[in-house]
Design a binder for these strands. Sequence first.
RNA 1: GUCCCCAUGGUCAAGCGGUUAAGACAUCGCCCUUUCAAGGCGGUAUCACGGGUUCGAUUCCCGUUGGGGACGCCA
Length: 484
Amino acid sequence: MVRVRFAPSPTGYLHIGGARTALFNWLYARKHNGKFILRIEDTDKERSTEESLSEILKSLRWLGLNWDEGPDVGGPYGPYFQSQRLDIYLKYIDKLLSENKAYKCFCTKEELEEERKKAESEKRAFKYSGKCKNLTEYEIKQKEESKIPYTVRIKINQEGETVIKDKIRGDVVFQNSVLDDFIIMRADKMPVYNFVVVIDDALMQITHVIRGEDHLSNTPKQIHIYKALGFTVPEFAHIPLILGPDKSKLSKRHGETSCGVYEKNGFLPEAFINYLALLGWSPDGEKTEMTIDEIIKEFSLEKVHKAGAIFDNQKLLWLNGVYIRKKNINELTELCIPYLKEANLITDDDIKNRYEYIKKVIALQQEKIKTLSEISSLSDYFFKDNITLTEDAKKILEKNKQDIKKVIEILKKIILEVGVEKTKVEERIRIDMEKAGIKPKVFMHVIRVVLTGTTIGPGLFDIIETLGKDMCLKRVENTMVNDL
RNA sequence: GUCCCCAUGGUCAAGCGGUUAAGACAUCGCCCUUUCAAGGCGGUAUCACGGGUUCGAUUCCCGUUGGGGACGCCA
């Protein structure tokens, strides 16, 4: 049974990189009918917050990455919060201590900092001197009685090498001599990440550890702990990092990295997932638009890339547009309404009373918006009483000054006579304008600007029909009063 | 500095010893067209470098260069 996990620490929102790590784990679980476990790594009490936790869970739910074990749902290997597992960790610390595989270290932070600086100035890698490894029982006892705080370090045999069996990278070999007796429990009795992650993964029966490449160099340390405790070492898969445009690890300075913000900005989860899945993985290089079921079906760690992948917002935007165009109009309307409301273009009453109108507007914009949020900036003239002209729109009026009056008088007359049904209006406008000697390009542009205040938008006759008789006439009147 | 990872167009990427080196985004033309999109057609653009191995290397090996990551009593 495949058991994989995603283990965020609740010290911020869900990062894009974290989301992809979660996604790959989830995909692997779903692909192999395994379990996807969510574990919260909240051992850093200073930085962990409730808000972060709920934000992360919210984003995971938005993405549809449901977990089989973890917060809310529980499971047979809980608790799934590390802060609730302290006694378990301490038990294993004691075990290592009693088996003489670890030892207490009384060195102070200052002493270590000194050594670290010295190593740096001598241009060599810092390694703990092992000073406390050979303390006598008496010395240890004495120091303990003097209440000198201590950390616990694991003993690392400097001989030989440690091999990581990585499903993506193959065998990665580290000489044990590069390791030192690293700390596994802090002076405040809190075990450190490299230790607890092993305990949890082992106890939770994790079979495959799928995580970012930045953890690759932690792995030999963790393997030593597995072995010291007699646990089975799981398989590893270190996925390439998501990079910013400058090819360094994607971070805040590259722009927005929070999933929550992508949601807020009007990205669809299925588009986001689709894009993320294709960063560092591709089934054949051919498919780009894939449903989640297809992705699950095709997913394999063997086809995951080794090199990092730059996050391309432009392509994500394009893909989001593809998904928006594919949405059925009822769903899209529901998705867009919050954005129209947010922009104060519609009220709750409008949603009740003018739902069909709203839907019609959204249908007209469907092929133009790349994010849900764009609906409001592109559609404001459908909802506002008074429109303002863009610079380009003013230019159009300026350019066709001598024809404006004629154009809108004809328009007014037609609307009053035949209404706004688009085929009828179009037919009459074309005929009457030709009679008046006004070219299509001129009257089309002028009418558009008069009705919408902008030079871009849906088909003109769709606009007329959707706006309706009253709105059209009102805007014609306003133009007559203001601009002529 | 040490250790580790990586290397096909601007970006995501197919390729796994013999190909005119796919496809997508972006970009640039053209078409469609009442604007903007969408769509259609076409173009520009890639195997980092140097050695091997081989009849033949983008592909295998070594090195160089370049990029990245990790070196915490953070996770």
